[in-house]
């Protein structure tokens, strides 16, 4: 199983802080596209992804137990 975290406007769109689902074997890009379609996520072309708290590329493959986070453009500071 994988924990998938959402932040900022993505959290508003999904309506949850996180989802538990099985994404192992999928690439980051595949999971992003799947969830974008299901939840009609806005602005996904600007969204970065983290696996286990480190930025990951779209072609990286998700392992069982990985924590995934979708990271919209940041606005701290």
């Amino acid at each position: 199983m994988n924990k998938v975290l959402f932040f900022a406007h993505l959290r508003d769109a999904v309506g949850e802080e996180f989802l538990k689902l099985d994404a192992s074997g999928k690439s980051v890009g595949e999971l992003k596209a799947e969830l974008a379609a299901i939840y009609n996520l806005p602005k996904v072309d600007t969204v970065m992804t983290a696996i286990n708290e480190e930025f990951a590329q779209d072609d990286e493959v998700i392992q069982d137990g990985d924590e995934i986070a979708f990271i919209p453009p940041v606005s701290g500071g």
């Binding site: 932040f7 930025f55 990271i71 919209p72 453009p73 606005s75 701290g76």
Partner: peptide, 27 residues
């Protein structure tokens, strides 16, 4: 660098609405 890579977001609240702000440069 904080504005580029640190996963922190701000939501602006105005008199006529609210919005998560979204690019690395600002607002």
């Amino acid at each position: 660098r904080i504005k580029e890579i640190v996963p922190i977001w701000k939501k602006e609240h105005w008199e006529d609405g609210e919005e998560w702000m979204g690019n690395q440069l600002e607002t």
